[in-house]
C-alpha cells in the first residue's frame, strides 16, 4: 500500500516538475496558456490514474492509440511530397508488374503459335495449349525460357483415342485429350515430381481428371513441339481426361 502510494506521489511530482520546466521553456505568454492546458491535463491524468486503473484497464494503450492516430494523420498530411526512395520503390514495383505482363503476353503468344502449328501439322484436334515460362538470370537480366507446355486435345467420339482425320466431335460425349509437356527434368527444380516415371515422354499426368493420351498422338505432338521450340521430349507429358475412352 505504502509502495503504491509512494509510486503514485512520485509520478505526480515528476509530472509537475516537468510542467514547471515546460512553462519555463515556452517562448511567450500566448503559447503558455495553451501549453498549460495540455500539461494540466497530464497532471490531471496522473492524479486520476488510480481511478482510471480501477475503471478501465488500459488507459495507457488508449492514449498511445490516440497519439499514434494523431501523428499518423500529421504524417499523412506532410507526406504528400514523395521521397526519392519512395519513387524508386514505385518504379521497381511498376517494372515488376510490367515484366509480369510481358511474360503473360509471351506465354499467350507462344501458346497461340504452338497451337496453330500443331493444328496445321498434325491431325490432332488441339483444344488448348498451356505454356509455362520460367525465368533464368542471364548476365543480370531476367530472361524467360519455356519450361513446360501442356496441350489439351479436343474430345473425339473415337474411343480408340487416335484423333483421326476428319473425326467429328461427338456432341453428346466429348473426350478431351491433354498433351502435357512436362518440365525439364534436369533443369527445373521440381523434377523430383514423379510425373514421368516410366521414361515415356508422353506419360500423361494421372492426377485429377487427366490420364495418358494415346501414345501415337502424343509422340507426334511432342516431337512437333520439341522440334519447333527446342524442348526436350522428356519434358512433354500427354494427358487426357480420365473418363475419356482413350485411356489405356
Amino acid at each position: 500500500m505504502v509502495a503504491w502510494l509512494s509510486d503514485w506521489l512520485r509520478d505526480i511530482i515528476a509530472v509537475i516538475l516537468l510542467a514547471v520546466f515546460v512553462e519555463l521553456l515556452l517562448p511567450n505568454k500566448a503559447m503558455q496558456r495553451y501549453a498549460r492546458l495540455v500539461v494540466g491535463l497530464f497532471i490531471l491524468l496522473t492524479i486520476l490514474s488510480p481511478i482510471l486503473k480501477l475503471i478501465q484497464s488500459d488507459i495507457g494503450a488508449k492514449l498511445d492509440e490516440g497519439m499514434e492516430n494523431w501523428s499518423r494523420l500529421a504524417a499523412a498530411d506532410s507526406a504528400q511530397m514523395t521521397g526519392l526512395s519512395q519513387i524508386k520503390q514505385d518504379a521497381e514495383a511498376m517494372s515488376a508488374k510490367r515484366n509480369l505482363e510481358a511474360a503473360k503476353l509471351t506465354e499467350r503468344t507462344l501458346e497461340a503459335s504452338i497451337r496453330n502449328e500443331l493444328i496445321e501439322r498434325s491431325d490432332a484436334a488441339v483444344a488448348d495449349v498451356d505454356a509455362v515460362l520460367k525465368w533464368v538470370n542471364a548476365s543480370g537480366q531476367q530472361t524467360p525460357y519455356l519450361s513446360q507446355v501442356t496441350v489439351t486435345l479436343k474430345a473425339t467420339e473415337n474411343s480408340s483415342g487416335n484423333v483421326k482425320e476428319g473425326a467429328t466431335v461427338e456432341k453428346v460425349q466429348p473426350v478431351i485429350v491433354d498433351v502435357e509437356v512436362e518440365p525439364m527434368e534436369p533443369v527445373s527444380p521440381y523434377s523430383s515430381e514423379p510425373k514421368v516415371k516410366d521414361g515415356q515422354s508422353q506419360a500423361a499426368q494421372v492426377e485429377g481428371n487427366w490420364s495418358r493420351a494415346d501414345p501415337a498422338v502424343t509422340a507426334e505432338l511432342s516431337s512437333l513441339i520439341a522440334k519447333g521450340w527446342g524442348l526436350n521430349q522428356e519434358q512433354i507429358v500427354v494427358r487426357q481426361p480420365a473418363e475419356g475412352p482413350l485411356q489405356k
Binding site: A30, M31, Y34, A35, L37, V38, L41, F42, L44, L45, L48, I51, L52, I55, Q56, I59, K62, L63, E65, G66, M67, N69, W70
Partner: peptide, 22 residues
Amino acid sequence: KVFILVMAVPIISVIVETVIGL
C-alpha cells in the same frame, strides 16, 4: 495554438470517457 490543442484531444477524450464511466 491549434496544433497544441490538437495534441490535447487524445488526453481529453480519455478523461471524458473516464468521467462518463465514473
